[in-house]
Design a protein around this nucleic acid. Structure first.
Lengths: 146, 146
DNA sequence: GTTTTTGGTTATTGAGGATAACTATTTTCC
DNA sequence: GGAAAATAGTTATCCTCAATAACCAAAAAC
């Protein structure tokens, strides 16, 4: 049924894409239950760890363009997960913080993510899983002017 | 500038996504010079290795839905890269083969891909690069009923 | 104090992937 | 042999992402 992939089966980009899709497919349903996308989850996590950070900082940290970040963060504000308070020292920027509801949701999301991680870790073996993390971090900086 | 990622910085899904985007960003311009997307490149490669295969087989092998595969393969046919010949034994299916022009282009694409692989391999170190391949293949089957 | 840069916004576009519904052929199976 | 189910391909449509351009207000640079 499955055809020969030729050189693709050892092509880093191709393997990364397939692996990423498979891993995302595993966590997606758990997040969707809470009506949250992977990007949403990442944004909540970063705001939680950096309360008061500005929109552009959060967006840039996650590799999201500020222009695409606007509707995303607005939806979260509308859902009551995030507070957007005008910054005192810089009247252009808005400081982002989680509401109590946002914090509570994030807690549930972390639990779901942990179950997902346990599955993937089990599939791969803990040692191999851990060994993967550092090289993947390094790969993320290919093509970036380091 | 960059904020704290919290648990994301060791989250497999997040790292895979960032790594995949970075690696794709590295090869994208080379492919774009030939007006070819990563998906196009994968399709040409698979047809080359499996001449005469049907559309759905190629699509399924690459994880592309047959419905989205139609415009893609039609564009390649229109460009004179691919031949779509009605199969003799199954009059529903079309057999895919590369034209000489498709073969020639694929040769140039493989060369560009090799240069890209060398870059990534250099960035990571050959040993670490090679060590990544197998676990990534395994990851691709998470969430699939093995 | 003018110029430049930065934080945020709007509007718009294009690519990728997903669903539904359909035709024509082949296969299954009673 | 013939009805029913499965398969190969197609069209049309939709939705989510990511990217571009143009803009305002405020701050920083010079």
């Amino acid at each position: 049924m499955a055809l020969d992939l030729g050189p693709l089966d050892s092509h880093m980009g191709y393997l990364l894409r397939r692996a990423q899709l498979a891993v995302f497919a595993d966590i997606l349903p758990s997040l969707a239950e809470h009506d949250v996308s992977p990007a949403d989850y990442a944004v909540l996590t970063v705001i939680d760890r950096n309360p008061g950070a500005g929109q552009s900082q959060v967006a840039e940290t996650l590799g999201i363009q500020k222009t695409n970040f606007v509707p995303l963060i607005r939806r979260m504000e509308a859902r009551g997960l995030v507070l957007r308070t005008p910054s005192a020292r810089d009247r252009r920027s808005v400081a982002l913080t989680l509401t109590d509801e946002g914090s509570a949701l994030l807690g549930r999301l972390h639990a779901a993510a942990q179950a997902h991680i346990d599955r993937v870790r089990g599939h791969l073996g803990a040692a191999q899983y851990d060994a993967l993390l550092e090289p993947l971090q390094r790969l993320a900086s290919v093509s970036r002017p380091s």
